[in-house]
Simulated scan of single mutants.
Amino acid sequence: MKAASSGCQPRLHHLRQEGGRREIDILIELAGHRVIGIEIKASTGPNRDSGRHLAWLRDELGDRFIRGLVLHTGRQVYDLGDRITATPICTIWS
């Protein structure tokens, strides 16, 4: 059995601007120019400041910003703001 696919290929980007003042590790651009942003942190408990670049991108893109994720080494999933979530990096492979 084949898995259904939408036929759209997401595009991956990295954002760094203004001498590193704003940087987002991974941007996933979906159909309709919708975007998911991902930050990767080595800490076990990121805070709102850890997602500040994602918040900036959300404010810039409005409804095109689907979700921001701050991947971390801890075990908890929790909100960092509107459409921005801290989530354990291990969720990628579990």
Rank of each mutant, 00 (worst) to 15 (best):
82 D>F: 13
87 T>H: 01
94 S>F: 15
34 R>Q: 07
25 D>S: 10
48 R>D: 01
47 N>Y: 01
9 Q>N: 04
31 A>T: 02
6 S>I: 07
14 H>A: 06
32 G>F: 02
3 A>D: 11
80 L>W: 09
17 Q>T: 10
24 I>D: 04
83 R>C: 09
31 A>L: 07
6 S>R: 08
42 A>L: 03
1 M>Q: 08
8 C>Y: 15
3 A>G: 14
3 A>C: 14
54 L>C: 11
49 D>K: 15
63 D>E: 13
42 A>N: 05
1 M>P: 07
41 K>Q: 01
43 S>E: 06
61 L>H: 11
25 D>G: 09
20 G>L: 04
11 R>Q: 08
51 G>C: 06
7 G>A: 01
18 E>M: 05
7 G>R: 08
1 M>G: 13
86 A>M: 09
88 P>F: 00
45 G>M: 08
55 A>K: 09
75 R>W: 15
16 R>A: 07
62 G>D: 04
79 D>I: 11
39 E>I: 02
3 A>L: 15
21 R>C: 05
4 A>C: 08
28 I>R: 00
71 L>T: 04
22 R>W: 11
62 G>M: 01
34 R>E: 04
52 R>G: 01
24 I>V: 13
7 G>C: 06
67 R>P: 10
85 T>Q: 05
67 R>Y: 11
21 R>L: 13
58 R>T: 04
16 R>K: 10
66 I>P: 02
34 R>M: 03
12 L>H: 03
7 G>E: 05
48 R>S: 02
21 R>Y: 11
33 H>R: 12
38 I>C: 03
48 R>V: 11
10 P>K: 04
89 I>E: 00
12 L>C: 07
71 L>F: 14
2 K>V: 12
14 H>R: 10
11 R>W: 13
39 E>W: 06
55 A>Q: 09
41 K>W: 06
83 R>K: 14
7 G>T: 10
40 I>A: 05
51 G>V: 04
7 G>N: 08
33 H>Q: 12
13 H>V: 01
85 T>Y: 06
1 M>K: 10
14 H>F: 15
79 D>L: 14
51 G>W: 05
10 P>F: 06
28 I>S: 00
56 W>T: 06
41 K>N: 01
47 N>F: 07
38 I>A: 02
15 L>R: 07
53 H>K: 00
15 L>I: 01
71 L>Q: 00
94 S>M: 14
84 I>R: 04
50 S>H: 14
37 G>N: 00
93 W>T: 13
58 R>K: 09
46 P>K: 03
79 D>T: 15
73 T>K: 13
35 V>K: 00
15 L>N: 02
29 E>L: 02
84 I>S: 05
53 H>A: 13
29 E>C: 01
30 L>M: 03
41 K>A: 03
